[in-house]
C-alpha cells in the first residue's frame, strides 16, 4: 500500500498498518531495561528514571531485576575484567530480542580508566552493542537520546530478509562465550566473532 492511499484512508477514519509495523511499534514502546548498574554512570541512569527526566515517558520505566524479563541491557559504567564474565553471562540469560546500550566512556572503551590492568577496554569486545553514548558520565538527556535512537532502530527493523533482527534468524547466535579468568588476563581477551581490532591507518 502506498503512502498516498494510506493517508487518504486515514482521512476517512480508516487506520491501516502492516503486521511488521505494528509488531515493531509494540516492541519499541515497551523496552524493559535490566536493573543493573556498574559504576558512576549508573547514578545518572537512576537519575534518568527519576522525577525530573522521567524515562517512563518512553515506556521504559520498568527496570527488571532479573535478566530473564529484560529486553535491554544498559551497560552503565566501567566493566572490569573481574566483572566481564558476569556481564556476558547476564547478557546470555536475557531472552531475545535483546539490545545493549553502552553508556559512558568506560563501557565504550575503558574511558578514563583505560590504562588500568583490571579494566576491560570496552564491552563490545565480548557482546554486540547497539547504541554507544559517549560522556563521562553522559547526562540523563544523552541517555534519553540513546534510548530514542534505539527505538528508531527497532522501528525500522525489517522482519524478513537478510537484515532481519537476530531473534528472527535461527542461524544467528543468541549466546556468546563467557571468558574465563586466567593467570594474567581474561582468556580469551576478546571474542573475535564480535570484535576486531581497528586498523591503524595513520602512518606511524
Amino acid at each position: 500500500m502506498n503512502e498516498g492511499l494510506r493517508s487518504e484512508l486515514s482521512k476517512q477514519g480508516i487506520f491501516t498498518t502492516t503486521l511488521g509495523d505494528l509488531y515493531n511499534w509494540g516492541r519499541k514502546n515497551s523496552v524493559w531495561p535490566l536493573q543493573f548498574g556498574l559504576a558512576c554512570c549508573a547514578i545518572e541512569m537512576i537519575a534518568t528514571t527519576m522525577a525530573r527526566y522521567d524515562l517512563a515517558r518512553f515506556g521504559a520505566e520498568v527496570f527488571r531485576p532479573s535478566p530473564r524479563q529484560a529486553d535491554l541491557m544498559i551497560v552503565a559504567g566501567t566493566v572490569t575484567k573481574k566483572m566481564a564474565p558476569q556481564v556476558v553471562r547476564l547478557y546470555n540469560q536475557m531472552p531475545e530480542p535483546k539490545y545493549v546500550i553502552a553508556m559512558g566512556a568506560c563501557a565504550i572503551s575503558g574511558g578514563p580508566f583505560k590504562q588500568g590492568y583490571n579494566v576491560l577496554k570496552g564491552i563490545d569486545r565480548f557482546i554486540p552493542v547497539d547504541v554507544h553514548i559517549p560522556g563521562c558520565p553522559p547526562r540523563p538527556e544523552a541517555l534519553i537520546h540513546a534510548f530514542m535512537t534505539l527505538q528508531k532502530k527497532i522501528e525500522t527493523q525489517q522482519l524478513t530478509g537478510v537484515n532481519r533482527p537476530r531473534h528472527l534468524d535461527a542461524e544467528a547466535p543468541s549466546e556468546f562465550p563467557v571468558p574465563k579468568f586466567g593467570g594474567h588476563d581474561l582468556e580469551p581477551p576478546n571474542n573475535p566473532a564480535v570484535w576486531h581490532a581497528p586498523k591503524l591507518v595513520r602512518e606511524p
Binding site: T78, T80, K82, M83, Q86, F113, G116, Y117, N118, V119
Partner: peptide, 22 residues
Amino acid sequence: GYLHRNHEKIAENTTYLASMPY
C-alpha cells in the same frame, strides 16, 4: 573487586593534578 579500576596505579603513573578528576 568487581569495580577495581586501578585508580591508585593510574595515579602513580600520572601527575598530581591529573589525578584530581579521578
